[in-house]
Each structure stands twice: as C-alpha cells, then as structure tokens.
Design a protein around this nucleic acid. Structure first.
Length: 296
DNA sequence: AAAGCGTGGGC
DNA sequence: TGCCCAAGCTT
C-alpha cells in the first residue's frame, strides 16, 4: 500500500468534540443490541434520523431478535415499515433476518464479509455494524464522512461521486489504530458531517476543526468536479404511483383490486409500469382470488 | 455503472 | 414555490 501523505491529525479533535456534542440517539444507549444496530442502519439508509426513531422503537419492541422478525411474513415487515420510504428495504431486512436465523444461529454476524453477504447490506452498513455493534476497527464511510473529508482534507466543497476504494483509503488514513478510538471516530466524523459540516449551510463558526480545514484555508472554493445526477421530479413520477399503490396495499389485509388501483392514478400506462415494478420487486403479489397483496 | 427506488421537512 | 437533501443498495 502507498503510505498516504501525512493527514492532519483530525481524529482526536473530532472525537473530543463528539464526546461533548453527540446527540442522544437510541442506538447510542448502553445495551443497544447488534440487531438493533442493524435495524437502525437499514432504516437510516436515505431516511432522516427524526423519522426513523419512532419506527425503530416499534420494530425492536415487536421484533427484538432476528428470529422474531424471521418468524412473521414479509408483509408484516412492509406494513410496519409504514411511510419510511424505499419499502424494498423492509423486504431486504426481513430477508436478512431469515438469513441470520438460518446461517448464523440467530446472531448478527460481526464479520464484514458475512454481513455483506446478507440481503440489503452494502459497504456502509456492513462496516457500520461491525464497528458500532462489535467495536471492530473498520473504516465506515457514509455521505457525511465523505463530505467532511472532501472539505477538511481535500479542500473541496463537495465530495466527488462515491468510490469504494478511494473512500475507504481516505478514511483509513485518518482512522486511529486503537479499536475503541477507531469506532468512536467513525461515529464522530459522521456526526460532525450531520450537524456541523452539513451539505447546505455548514456551521463553520462552531466547527472544532475549522483551523485545520483545507476548504476554509482555500477560501471556500466552489466545487467544480463532476456533478451528481439530479433526481427526477417526484410529483407525477412512476415512483409516486408506486408509493400510492404501496400505501393502498399497506392499508388493508384484503386483496387490492384493479378497480381500486385505477382510482389511485389516472394514467393507465404509469399504473401498469408501477404495478409491474412492484411485482418484479416482490413488494406485491397477485392474489389467487384476484387483486394484489403484500408478499407473504 | 448509471439509473431507479419514497417520503417529508427545510429554506 | 420548487428544489435540495437525508447513516445506500441493487441491478
């Protein structure tokens, strides 16, 4: 491996700041389980903390172990997911619970490769579980971490598009060698990105590393790298139609009829695409008696 | 490997 | 108001 250039020693400062400023969040409580960490990480994939917390507490009360979730039909998971968004995650989390029960004796694995092999778990979630639930030393890189590194280290206003290799290398260069300190720093730099070094209006006036920040030192240059793709408008999109159909499926235990689906959206081609997509994703299944249901 | 995938809050 | 953003993942 190439020895990276001497990175500014950011970890101790950011971690000290974290100890003073960390939000009191459920997954930071003493005794929070590895399963709780896994569930929270699934829910936090693209859904804000404030919306996750109530659903998380419901889930863990109802399904305190992977085996408990694995024992119910996937439809229950999708229903309890409610309006967290991206309901495929509920399906994947249920599938992961089944896999954990079958392959790992009901214990959430602590090995990154075993975690990566579970449905719905990628580079971020696998390392987050290994680091936060088990205290292992791995670089954990999420969108917040990427942004802090882009600014403080690279001197750019925004991170380049995610690159597994580059991102893990950059974080590894900053990561303390001690396991406990590494785990704390992984959480700390994420938290800094989440509440200080934010995407829109960073609060540089209260930033603990402002004096070491390369972006600030460079005079806050405007980012001129590759732009991330702009998400298409939601209003009127196929995604909106999917969302409407899913809300209808969640609202009842009876099959939802074609007639009912027709009332949800005027455009037949869009309805057909949305429904076909849901069937293909396994979020809906055709009922033997007609209409559509959540999957078993 | 770029595109598709929900939902709601903030400015 | 409309746009941006939010602890990503899969195909």
């Amino acid at each position: 491996m190439n020895e990276t250039l001497p990175a500014p020693d950011l970890a101790p400062v950011i971690t000290a700041w974290f100890h003073e400023n960390a939000r009191d969040l459920p997954w930071r409580r003493d005794g929070f389980t590895a399963w709780g960490t896994l569930v929270s990480e699934f829910m936090l994939q693209q859904t804000p903390v404030a919306r996750v917390i109530p659903r998380l507490e419901e889930w863990l009360t109802r399904w305190p172990t992977p085996a408990a979730l694995a024992a119910v039909p996937a439809s229950e998971a999708v229903r309890a997911w409610a309006s967290l968004g991206y309901p495929r995650r509920a399906l994947w989390l249920h599938a992961a619970a089944v896999q954990i029960t079958e392959r790992h004796g009901g214990e959430v694995p602590d090995d990154v490769d075993e975690l990566l092999a579970l449905t719905g778990i990628g580079d971020y979630t696998a390392r987050a579980v290994a680091a936060f639930a088990y205290g292992h030393r791995h670089p954990v890189v999420d969108t917040n971490t990427r942004r802090v590194i882009a600014r403080a280290v690279a001197g750019q206003g925004e991170p380049a598009p995610p690159s597994r290799t580059r991102d893990l290398e950059a974080m590894t260069a900053l990561l303390p060698h001690d396991r406990r300190e590494a785990a704390a720093f992984n959480a700390a730099i994420m938290e800094l990105g989440a509440i200080v070094c934010t995407a829109k209006s960073p609060r540089c006036d209260v930033c603990p590393i402002r004096d070491a920040c390369a972006w600030r030192a460079a005079g806050y240059p405007v980012y001129d790298g590759p732009k991330k793709a702009v998400q298409k408008k939601y209003e009127g999109s196929d995604r909106q139609v999917r969302g409407l159909i899913m809300a209808e499926l969640r609202s009842t235990h009876r099959p939802v009829t074609n007639a009912e689906i027709e009332t949800l959206w005027p455009n037949a081609a869009q309805r057909d695409r949305a429904l076909a997509g849901l069937l293909s994703d396994g979020l809906a299944v055709a009922s033997p008696t007609g209409g559509y249901l959540l999957p078993d």
